[in-house]
Write a protein that binds this DNA or RNA. Structure first.
Lengths: 204, 204
DNA sequence: GAAGTTATTATACGCTTGAATAATATCGGC
DNA sequence: GCCGATATTATTCAAGCGTATAATAACTTC
């Protein structure tokens, strides 16, 4: 009986691999198909190792959720340029890979569906949503100011809620059934709608 | 050992009860918590009965998904009155119980998360989405006509996509974290945004 | 290069799962 | 009021689940 060879992964790296494998499995087989064994296979290790890095499978899944939210949010926060460009980029990013991807929306939905069950996931979701929306609100505030339009914080909040909803809704459908839309159609619809909501063109 | 008493349910009724119990369990415990045994307990029967009514648990879950989509859609299709009233109602319904409910969005998300895994669910989702969007497109077409505005089918399609996205996105967030919004705020934001997108007030 | 540390494997355990089967209670037709 | 049909229960099964434990291989340190 020869024992399988292995190498020790550098600090923290294995954790990351396990989280990534967890997400792969959830996206591919669903939450209930993402078993410890499947995840281990995907990560190229044996199942026992999971409990060496995480207190429980549930804890690992929660951390994986954090990673998803972070990756969905970070893309949107790293836009640069003048306010109009940044707003345009912020919207466009959501209809471009890697955000616009059926894997992303599957993961998002899988976790959303657990928000009611698991208060920890609910909290993570809430933080992620608010971070995203507040980034957008800030962006809108600057954009409107640059356009010379006075807008109260309350107004910006309402705009942010609306545009966040719009972008999220289109994102979901685009990811789930991209073939129902023409190339670039969703981003074009999103832009036009945002302009209409704000009553301003998003040009420089 | 005394055997548990029972009564034979009338034609079709038991099926409906089992589907309803399935949805209860999915909403309460998540997809993986919705086991045959839990569902049976919820329905007040024993586990074996499931296989008497359905070929498999998966098939029962798929039928349950159909029921969810139907209930989400039917509310929106039963609006009456002149075009403006119907459009207003169509939007409002999505922010009123029973559609606006964390149970609904949990179920929706649970199934969405499986769309990638199960082609049958993907098909059901697609049909539901298109039915919803086409209803909305029809509504918009009539509304614009009543307002005396000429709009091509293509224009109406784009409006329908946008407004559907907007409503869906707001619906999700409202259901998941209703406490982040004031009473009636979401429906008010939705109405205002739709009016802005269409460039018309939604009054009679 | 030997000793100590620990990341990793291997194996086993108790439980739960969806499904199959056999026994039985209920009901409609006569 | 019995009888056949079948809806329902009770029980069993193999497979898979998350986790615990012990052996071991790979690095670190001196």
């Amino acid at each position: 009986m020869t024992r399988r060879t292995f190498h020790r992964a550098p600090e923290g790296e294995r954790r990351q691999e396990l989280i990534e494998a967890t997400l792969d499995c959830i996206a591919e087989f669903g939450l209930k198909g993402a078993t410890v064994r499947q995840i281990a296979i995907r990560a190229g290790v044996t199942a026992g190792l999971v409990r060496h890095y995480f207190e429980s499978k549930d804890q690992m899944v929660a951390e994986a959720y954090r990673a998803v939210i972070a990756s969905l949010t970070e893309q949107a926060q790293n836009v640069e340029g003048d306010p109009a460009t940044r707003l345009r980029e912020f919207i466009a990013v959501n209809f471009t890979e890697p955000v616009a991807d059926s894997r992303s929306v599957s993961l998002w939905a899988a976790f959303i569906s657990q928000v009611r069950v698991d208060p920890i996931l609910a909290e993570i979701h809430r933080e992620g949503y608010l971070a995203f929306r507040n980034t957008l609100q800030e962006l809108l505030s600057e954009f409107l100011a640059a356009k010379g339009r006075r807008a109260s914080e309350e107004e910006c909040r309402r705009y942010a809620i609306a545009i966040n909803g719009l972008v999220d809704g289109l994102w979901v459908e685009g990811c789930l059934a991209g073939d129902l839309f023409r190339d670039g159609e969703l981003v074009s619809i999103a832009m036009a709608s945002v302009e209409a909501v704000l009553g301003l063109p998003i040009e420089n």
